[in-house]
């Protein structure tokens, strides 16, 4: 079972805020889902190689050739706070 504290920790890891009103609802919904997911533990998967790709492709490479970049202007075109040649962000508070 996931606790409210764990929900808070996970929300912080994911950089989300969950207000107190939502927290209970969210916790119980997540628990419903996790409970459902728990049925996987019925299965013995000892020795089964985990699958991370649906199709077994290997060695997909690119040649080391330069292609024109976007350039500063286009790189910043979508920036919510582009200043000069940079993306600007609020200061990191340690």
């Amino acid at each position: 079972m996931i606790s409210k504290q764990e929900v808070e920790y996970v929300a912080h890891l994911a950089r989300l805020e969950i207000d107190d009103a939502q927290k209970d609802k969210f916790t119980s919904q997540l628990n419903d889902i996790l409970l459902y997911i728990d049925k996987l533990n019925e299965l013995d998967t000892t020795g089964v190689e985990p699958m991370s790709h649906a199709i077994a492709v290997t060695n997909a490479f690119r040649e080391d050739r330069i292609v024109d970049s976007l350039g500063t202007e286009k790189s910043l075109a979508n920036a919510p706070d582009g200043r000069g040649e940079f993306f600007r962000v609020p200061k990191v508070i340690e």
Binding site: N78, A79, V89, P90, K91
Partner: peptide, 16 residues
């Protein structure tokens, strides 16, 4: 940071 929506009420980076 790079595109899309950004809140207008951030105190610091984490808050943003």
């Amino acid at each position: 940071v790079k595109y899309g929506y950004r809140t207008s009420e951030a105190r610091d980076l984490l808050d943003m």
